[in-house]
Write a protein that binds this DNA or RNA. Structure first.
Lengths: 63, 63
DNA sequence: ACTCAATGTAATGCAACTTTGACATTGCGA
DNA sequence: TCGCAATGTCAAAGTTGCATTACATTGAGT
């Protein structure tokens, strides 16, 4: 899976730490997802979609 | 997370085994997801959306 | 040059997802 | 009634997601 997290976060000028707090996860988790180390769980993907006010499909993409 | 897997599968008259094969997972995984034992991973959620030709948001819902 | 925020990354540990194999129950058609 | 497909469920084991702690690097501002 690819994702547009880094871009979306940059547009909003949020640090990884900012986003992590909004999501209720650690900064390392945000970093790992952005750098493609692993994919978020489905519940976390929904929370990510929530904070960006987008659909999951608009953020994540099959690779 | 809640999901409409059982209904969507019933409409198409697919057995859990049929769906499992389309998804490339075990029948027990399909059953566990349907019975709410756990949520699928994000990649699996995308594959589920693919086989039903729906969006993830149309299939899964925050509970 | 120094500092500090932001980011990358590694190790360890636990929780969640998934598989395989096995067994029980239910319902329907022969 | 017998057989079989479909489903529910359990245990053991492997993989992946996430937390925590810790340390290194980079870049911007002073």
């Amino acid at each position: 899976m690819k994702n547009r997290l880094r871009v979306l976060r940059a547009i909003r000028e949020w640090s990884q730490q900012d986003l992590a707090e909004k999501l209720g996860v650690s900064r390392q988790s945000v970093n790992a997802i952005e750098t493609g180390k692993y994919d978020p769980s489905l519940p976390l993907a929904f929370r990510i979609a929530d904070v960006f006010e987008l659909t999951i499909e608009e953020i994540f993409e099959r690779d």
